[in-house]
């Protein structure tokens, strides 16, 4: 449904409900999008919006309740883990917490080597060793670090190891699930540059999940805005940040503090209240309970994702609102 020139991944009607019974938690509720080859797609939204659940379903770390996930023209949404296995070398994930995602009892050599062994990617000890050294070099770590344990590294270095592990099997698609949020700003910048370089070098396709709107603007080609398991808006990055159409996107951008005291927010509209429970989402538009522009009709109809400009989609009944010009200074 979105513009899909050469999609590497195409998702249709993806749902994930947790728990049985009359009121399951609707973590992801009917999401459709595509990721083009070589593209970095950003996925933003507040906690509980379903970002990580989508990321994990795409590489089948979680089983979808319903829907299709087409990877290289094959629906992988419901295939068995055994059938998944050969595909795993083409899809990898970088996790948020570099402290929890590396086995503390394994040396870096084992952590990286395990991925190579599983997929039979290095034959013989010499080749294995050479590949591990190459991977460490790729992420800016010294080859002699291979004999260390994770606790001997700082957070930024650990995240580099996480990146090296994901790259070990030469994937074509990477899910980066908040890979920067555990890191300090100065270290974040190092990892952002690393991801940019690797993307350019290997033509990686990436789903970049984050709640940091500035990093997403910097890194991504297109962005999806999620709220309560539903897509509110999809647009190319520049369009989304400069001419957001959905009231939620506008509120999210207005709430994000600009690191420039010359541009202080003055009397900006703040969203009231909290994100509702995904076990009992509002009827109609899920955002209507916090939306400053909600009408009675918003409680009746679930707004469909509609194309408002080429490549720019939004799910909102109100077409009479002017797109907010967010960044007045830019042209």
């Amino acid at each position: 449904m979105n513009d899909t020139a050469n999609p590497l991944i195409e998702v249709r009607g993806l749902r994930k409900y947790f728990g049985a019974g009359p009121q399951p938690v609707r973590a992801v509720d009917g999401v459709s999008f595509a990721i083009r080859e070589g593209e970095t797609l950003g996925l933003v939204g507040e906690s509980g919006s379903g970002k990580s659940t989508i990321g994990r379903m795409l590489i089948r770390l979680l089983d979808p309740t319903e829907g299709q996930i087409r990877f290289k023209d094959r629906d992988i949404a419901h295939i068995s883990q055994r059938q998944m296995r050969p595909l795993r070398s083409s899809m990898q994930i970088i996790f948020q917490d570099p402290y929890a995602s590396l086995n503390p009892r394994m040396r870096i050599r084992q952590i990286l080597g395990e991925a190579l062994d599983t997929h039979g990617l290095a034959k013989g000890k010499g080749e294995r060793q050479a590949r591990i050294a190459e991977l460490l070099d790729l992420v800016g770590l010294r080859p002699e670090y291979a004999d260390r344990y994770p606790h001997e590294f700082s957070g930024g270095q650990r995240q580099r190891i996480g990146v090296a592990r994901a790259l070990a099997v030469e994937p074509s698609f990477i899910v980066a699930d908040e890979p920067l949020s555990a890191l300090d700003v100065s270290i974040q910048a190092q990892v952002v540059n690393l991801l940019c370089d690797l993307k350019d070098r290997f033509g990686l396709t990436m789903l970049f999940i984050s709640h940091d709107l500035d990093v997403v603007e910097f890194l991504c080609d297109r962005v999806i805005v999620l709220y309560l398991g539903k897509i509110m808006e999809i647009a190319p990055t520049e369009t989304l940040y400069h001419r957001p159409q959905h009231p939620y996107t506008q509120a999210l951008l207005a709430a994000s503090p600009i690191p420039d005291p010359a541009q202080r927010h003055k009397d900006r509209p703040l969203l009231v209240g909290d994100i509702p429970s995904p076990a009992n989402p509002p009827s109609g538009c899920v955002f209507r309970t916090r939306c400053p522009h909600a009408l009675p009709a918003c409680a009746e109809t679930v707004p469909a994702l509609a194309e408002v400009a080429p490549g720019h989609w939004k799910a909102c009944l109100r077409n009479d609102l002017h797109p907010l010009s967010m960044k007045g200074t830019s042209q």
Binding site: E46, S47, L213, A254, A255, P257, R268, L270, L271, V272
Partner: peptide, 8 residues
């Protein structure tokens, strides 16, 4: 906290 709550 999330950004919208942070702003509040």
């Amino acid at each position: 906290l999330d950004v919208t709550i942070q702003a509040q």
